[in-house]
Amino acid sequence: MMTNEKSTGGNWIDPDDAPKLTQDWADGADAYVGQTLVRRGRPKLEQTKQHVSLRLDPDVIASFKAGGPGWQARINEALRKAARL
């Protein structure tokens, strides 16, 4: 029989053995400054982008994707130039 080489070995911990969560733990889960909850993640933009569904020719998409990551932003910039904004 073959063995799985990706085995976790002897370091595996049974999730049923996890410590009991207490109210003290829950109280520390959210960070506050005074009475204000500190938001995590990216800050909200003044002007958010709008989701649209757009059909483009495959060769157009391939051309922008060939430029690597950020291809959607490059399409947005090309459309902005075309609209002269």
Rank of each mutant, 00 (worst) to 15 (best):
M2F: 05
T3H: 07
E5S: 12
T8N: 10
G10W: 09
G10V: 07
G10F: 10
I13H: 07
I13T: 12
I13K: 15
P15H: 08
D16M: 02
A18M: 14
P19C: 05
P19D: 06
K20A: 15
K20M: 14
K20E: 15
K20D: 14
Q23C: 07
Q23E: 14
D24I: 09
D24K: 15
W25I: 12
W25G: 06
D27H: 03
G28W: 05
A29L: 15
D30W: 13
A31Y: 07
T36Y: 10
L37A: 11
L37N: 06
V38H: 01
R39H: 12
R40Q: 07
G41V: 08
G41T: 09
G41N: 10
P43Y: 08
P43Q: 13
P43R: 15
K44V: 02
K44I: 05
K44W: 02
K44P: 01
L45D: 06
E46R: 06
E46C: 02
K49A: 11
Q50P: 01
Q50C: 02
H51N: 06
V52C: 13
S53E: 10
L54V: 11
R55Y: 04
L56D: 00
L56Q: 00
D57W: 05
P58M: 04
V60D: 04
I61N: 01
A62F: 04
A62M: 06
A62T: 10
S63N: 07
K65L: 01
A66P: 00
G67Y: 01
P69F: 08
P69L: 09
G70A: 13
G70C: 12
G70F: 14
W71V: 06
W71P: 05
Q72H: 02
Q72E: 09
Q72I: 01
A73C: 05
A73G: 12
R74W: 03
N76Y: 04
L79R: 01
R80K: 14
R80A: 00
K81A: 06
K81T: 03
A82G: 06
A82R: 01
A83Q: 02
R84L: 09
R84F: 05
L85C: 10
L85R: 09
